[in-house]
Computed example of a mutant assay.
Amino acid sequence: MKIYGYKNTELLPEEIIPDELAEITLLASVEELRKIASFMLSAADEIESKGSKWEHRHLSDFDKRFNEAPHFVIYNPNTGS
């Protein structure tokens, strides 16, 4: 497992290059943590069923209440990209 991220800056999307992170910290309510856990379980199920055809999914697409939150993305390491 690897974790990537970048700072919230004013760069254009094409200028953003994610860095590998050594640690992440989630400051989230119990309700938010349960929703994130559900999202992660759903992503695991989809990767398992669709294999390399499943590339990535955003938490905000799974649950619109996260639209204003930092982007949380699950990426399938088996896509060949």
Results as ranks from 00 to 15, higher is better:
47 I>S: 07
18 P>V: 10
18 P>L: 10
61 D>W: 12
18 P>M: 07
51 G>S: 01
33 L>H: 01
2 K>M: 03
38 S>F: 08
26 L>D: 04
3 I>E: 02
78 N>Y: 15
41 L>D: 13
42 S>I: 01
30 V>N: 14
66 F>K: 02
37 A>M: 08
28 A>E: 04
17 I>Y: 13
67 N>F: 08
36 I>E: 02
11 L>A: 13
50 K>I: 00
23 E>V: 01
57 R>F: 09
69 A>Q: 03
36 I>V: 09
19 D>Q: 15
6 Y>A: 09
33 L>I: 05
56 H>C: 13
35 K>T: 13
31 E>W: 00
63 D>Q: 06
65 R>I: 13
52 S>V: 04
31 E>L: 06
31 E>Q: 06
17 I>G: 07
47 I>F: 06
68 E>A: 04
19 D>G: 15
25 T>H: 03
44 A>L: 14
49 S>Y: 05
51 G>R: 00
44 A>F: 10
6 Y>S: 14
15 E>P: 11
60 S>H: 11
32 E>S: 05
8 N>I: 06
66 F>N: 00
65 R>C: 10
10 E>L: 12
69 A>I: 04
54 W>T: 08
76 N>T: 07
55 E>Y: 13
29 S>L: 05
15 E>I: 08
52 S>A: 10
10 E>Q: 12
45 D>F: 03
70 P>T: 03
78 N>K: 14
39 F>W: 03
73 V>C: 07
39 F>C: 05
24 I>R: 09
63 D>V: 06
14 E>D: 09
75 Y>R: 14
54 W>C: 09
60 S>E: 14
59 L>M: 01
14 E>L: 07
48 E>S: 15
62 F>W: 04
35 K>N: 11
43 A>G: 12
51 G>C: 02
5 G>P: 01
5 G>C: 03
3 I>T: 03
25 T>K: 06
33 L>Q: 07
72 F>T: 01
62 F>S: 06
29 S>G: 03
55 E>W: 14
16 I>F: 02
37 A>E: 11
54 W>Q: 15
40 M>V: 12
64 K>R: 14
6 Y>P: 11
65 R>V: 12
6 Y>E: 12
1 M>C: 13
12 L>E: 14
48 E>V: 05
57 R>L: 06
59 L>S: 01
71 H>Y: 12
47 I>W: 02
71 H>G: 11
42 S>L: 08
78 N>D: 15
15 E>G: 09
6 Y>H: 15
20 E>K: 07
8 N>Y: 05
65 R>T: 15
29 S>A: 01
7 K>Q: 08
19 D>R: 15
58 H>F: 15
32 E>T: 03
16 I>C: 05
75 Y>G: 06
48 E>Y: 10
31 E>Y: 03
38 S>R: 11
35 K>Y: 01
71 H>F: 12
40 M>N: 10
5 G>T: 00
10 E>P: 04
48 E>P: 04
69 A>R: 00
29 S>K: 05
32 E>P: 02
6 Y>W: 15
9 T>I: 03
65 R>E: 15
77 P>K: 14
72 F>N: 01
36 I>D: 05
12 L>I: 08
75 Y>Q: 14
20 E>V: 10
41 L>K: 15
9 T>G: 07
74 I>Y: 05
64 K>T: 09
45 D>K: 10
54 W>E: 15
47 I>L: 12
63 D>H: 07
6 Y>C: 15
71 H>K: 11
30 V>W: 04
